[in-house]
Amino acid sequence: MDFDFTPRQQEIYDIVGDLGMNRFGPRALALEAAGHSPVENFKDLFDAGLNGGGISKEWGGIGGGALGEDPLAALLVVEQTARYCMSTAQCVSLHYNLSHRLEAVGTAEQKARIIPGIIQQGHLVNGTASEPGRTARGLYNLQTTAEKVDGGWVINGHKNYGTIADIAHYNIVSAVIKGGTVPEDHMTFMIPVDAPGFTIIADTWNPFGMRAAYSPDLLLKDCFVADHNVLGPPGETASSRWQAKAHLGFAAQYLGGCEGVFDFLVDYLPKRGTANDSYTQLRLGEIRIAIDATRWLVYRASWLWQKKAFAQAELFSMNAKHQALQTTRLVIDRAAQIAGSSALNADTVLARHIRDLRYQSLHENLDKTAATVGKFHLGQQFDVTARL
């Protein structure tokens, strides 16, 4: 395993670092206050040639994504973006994952129709599987239903966490065939943002963190989706284990957010006058060690995906995600201790990072992640696609 970036990876890391420092970071507080999707940040990434992070080089992308030529390339964009604006990083990661899935399972017609817009015009796609009560029911036990009609499907349901639903060219939505069973009859539909029967429910996004990852509720009321906008066959989400391919995107967000906290501390602590304090040095060292340990687990998991060692990559991605979550907890605690209350005014960079890290890490169940790894090593049945 080569621990050095390729020239292209280093270029991506530097480009996004520059955008983050000079554009994403300065915009972050205003975006958070407004609770708006990060349109300008997406425009900057598009202008830098990075809107196709999950698209192959053959189509003009950078080859990222779990099944791509260079999975780490996309993760570096997410990591460096999160270092300055975690909300934007979540939006980018989602767009990358879903555009990657589109290329992997879409028909030739779908790819020819949608991918050029992503690469050449900055179009975005999102993915919304969640809905109220799904955590208790299970990943695929959805109440959103799809009923076959002439020429397409009629979708009815209520979804939540529709990230970038307002600016996505296509909202990729999950449903279950009416009267069917799961996961065999779980389906995925690409819904144009202006489709009749598709409504973004106003005033349904007001979290304490990740506010600029605008994720409102969505209402589908007799929403017609043509057959040519069905993405993959029934049951494909489960059989292709797409949930497992998203773990590293979350890990990269936590990694980048923690790095942003470290950046703040290195600048702030000398100004506070506590840089020579042994306790401060200890806690900062703990943060640095934890971040570095997380980084190399994330990068190794990416390397396993690149090697097409899929079973190993899925499991090791769980390791990386778990370490990223542990690091997030440590960083939040240690940073608050050594920075002090004055650094936690609501409008500080540190306070924003802590809000975002805590809120975003609620996507994951730390104990279940570790238990999944434990089941594997005990020779028991395990499921790397489950998140909660």
Rank of each mutant, 00 (worst) to 15 (best):
F250D: 06
Q9H: 13
H322M: 11
A346L: 14
Q10T: 14
R295H: 14
S87E: 02
K43T: 15
V16W: 06
T372I: 01
L315F: 05
F262H: 13
A112F: 04
F250W: 12
G138M: 10
A244N: 06
Y140M: 12
Q323N: 13
M190Q: 09
P207Y: 03
R283F: 11
D267M: 07
T144V: 13
A351T: 10
S278K: 15
V173E: 04
R358P: 01
T107Y: 01
K221G: 11
Q10Y: 11
V173P: 04
S130E: 06
G65S: 09
A336T: 15
I201A: 08
S342P: 05
I15L: 15
W305T: 01
D194R: 14
Q110V: 04
L378S: 14
M1N: 15
V331G: 06
Y279S: 13
G52Y: 02
Q80T: 13
E40P: 10
T88P: 00
D47G: 13
S302F: 09
K368R: 06
Q10L: 14
T385Y: 05
I114H: 00
G157R: 00
A168V: 10
A324E: 04
A165D: 11
V176C: 02
F189V: 09
A370T: 03
F262M: 14
G162A: 11
A301L: 10
I167C: 10
A74M: 12
H169T: 13
D203R: 08
A335Y: 03
R211F: 00
I118W: 00
Q80M: 14
N41Y: 07
W153Q: 07
I12T: 07
L67R: 09
V149N: 08
D263E: 12
A108W: 12
L72W: 12
R283P: 01
D194C: 07
T237R: 03
P71A: 00
L357H: 02
I115C: 02
L139C: 08
A252L: 03
V384D: 03
G25L: 12
E364T: 05
C91S: 02
G180Q: 02
R134S: 05
I177A: 11
I191C: 04
D47M: 15
K245P: 07
A165G: 07
G179F: 02
H36C: 14
D217C: 07
M86W: 03
K271G: 08
P216H: 04
L269Q: 05
T327K: 08
R101E: 12
Q360W: 08
F24Y: 04
H353P: 06
S342C: 13
L19M: 13
N171K: 09
Y214W: 13
G285H: 10
D347F: 10
G63K: 05
I332F: 07
V105D: 10
A33F: 10
S317M: 06
T385K: 06
M190W: 01
G53W: 01
A386K: 12
I287V: 09
Y13R: 14
R113V: 02
